[in-house]
Design a protein around this nucleic acid. Structure first.
Lengths: 149, 149
DNA sequence: GTCCATAAGGTCAGGAAAGGTCAAACAGCG
DNA sequence: CGCTGTTTGACCTTTCCTGACCTTATGGAC
């Protein structure tokens, strides 16, 4: 487990403690974890992206900051939004993030998320010709989402 | 008896010792058994497959790992029986019946059954070339089944 | 007001550290 | 010999970490 996970954990902690919104100083955080400042950007980009349900605002210059806010929209909308986001084809990574996002916002249960991930996983789709996988993943996932509520 | 069996034995050992779940480093393991890293993949693919009741997750990059989880807590014998009944390919009708049976016997929940049926339905698999559909359905359903517990 | 020094944060490319895939060579057996 | 399962290696993808360089804001000197 690398530093990135530690930093992500720390930020999550902050978010829970302060009701879904946290403000941090990049340099200070980098210093605390003994890493280079841009690693903070990396962590934010990979773990607190909009797809995962966060809003990130920032300001440069003196008194600058990075504010991360967790956002929780309403269930049905989110599912439909997800369905629309999928389109004709979707890569494994993207799909995983979408499902994780739904899980995290409490729209789908743990079990449902597991089932969905299992159905669109690498193992499950190995029987599908590679060039058809993204399309298959898209339609399978959409059908499941439509039936999840 | 080749190296593969030794490696498989070692992993099984780990699994028993740690209550059905083990996390390993591919390179480290390959080194220990003096084989090439991809042989670990081979062992996992042939001996810890979903059909045999294992879930395999992994992560690449720094701090990467391979996690193998054994999933057979007993009442789910039925599920495994179903998994084995599926084989390499399964038609839509057959699959539907299998799922319906599981639902009937109370092994899977209503919601889970719905999701599974959605994932292997005609709509979901429209993106898969016709000649590959039965195989795709089989592997998707198997993956979902071992994750339903 | 203009300028510029200082204090933030942002971007991007590259290298290192994992694991994944696939096809070819090999071994044992009926 | 032909099959089936094993072993290997070449090449690929993903994730993480770092550093060089860039952009934006603030505030004081003039």
């Amino acid at each position: 487990m690398g530093i990135s996970d530690l930093i992500a954990g720390f930020i999550s902690e902050l978010l829970s403690e302060s009701d879904g919104s946290a403000e941090l100083q990049r340099a200070e955080l980098a210093n605390r974890f003994n890493c280079v400042p841009s690693q903070i950007n990396y962590v934010i980009a990979t773990r607190f992206s909009p797809e995962r349900g966060y809003i990130v605002e920032s300001r440069r210059g003196g008194g600058g900051y990075i504010r991360i806010t967790r956002v929780t929209p309403d269930p049905e909308r989110l599912v439909m939004h997800t369905v629309n986001a999928i389109g004709e084809r979707v890569e494994h990574n993207t799909a995983t993030v979408l499902v994780a996002n739904l899980l995290q916002s409490g729209v789908v249960s743990d079990g449902a998320a597991r089932l969905m991930l299992a159905a669109i996983g690498v193992h499950a789709l190995r029987a599908v010709p590679p060039e058809a996988r993204d399309a298959a993943r898209a339609s399978i996932l959409k059908q499941m989402l439509i039936n999840v509520i």
